[in-house]
Design a protein around this nucleic acid. Sequence first.
DNA 1: ATCCCGAGGG
DNA 2: CCCTCTGGAT
Length: 219
Amino acid sequence: MTRKERFEGVLEHFQRNHPVAETELDYQDPFQLLVAVILSAQCTDKRVNLITPALFEQFPDAPSLAAAEPEEVFALIRSCSYPNNKAKHLVGMARMLVNDFGNQVPDSVEALQKLPGVGRKTANVIASVVFDLPAMAVDTHVFRVAARLGLSVGSKTPLETEKQLVAHIPQELVAKAHHWLILHGRYVCLARKPQCAQCPLTPWCAHFQSAAQTDQTAV
DNA sequence: ATCCCGAGGG
DNA sequence: CCCTCTGGAT
């Protein structure tokens, strides 16, 4: 099976069975999504959604967060990973939004990455979800799932996987494909124990097919 | 023990 | 390239 056929099979399956695919983070505007995505690093969406209501009640927008001290934010995000770093990033991000971007979330990956705490992955998420750009954010799930399925080949970095995926996915499907791969990684293609018995993508999966040749259980 | 929608710095 | 930051869940 060619890589092109893997892409077509996987994308067709998702389009038919999961026409709607969205982030599971709770937010009400671009600023809040930016905050939520920064908090989601090495932390589950569920835990982020648990703490953002209190955070957004106290700091609902960039100006209020810009006026805060990192220590105040730290107390509210304590249960997420890296609270010290994230508290500094969030306040710094809000201050740069207010001071340098006219309190508007920038609309390009390049500008977004200038914000403290915003790397390529977070910038791609905002570009895709908020501005509807064909940006593929490669997080731990996308990186792993793409490699297992055989959608990426020989990629050692998220950036390389991103390039390969964008090169093979129709522009209008890139944003959806991002969420499809995330959700598939979160609930089916688990990092430690992929649930191949429950997986609808095995007809196009490189990992499943190579495993089936050497091991009848094909886990 | 290993993983969760990473980023920044050396 | 590597390392560190760091808490919660399984």
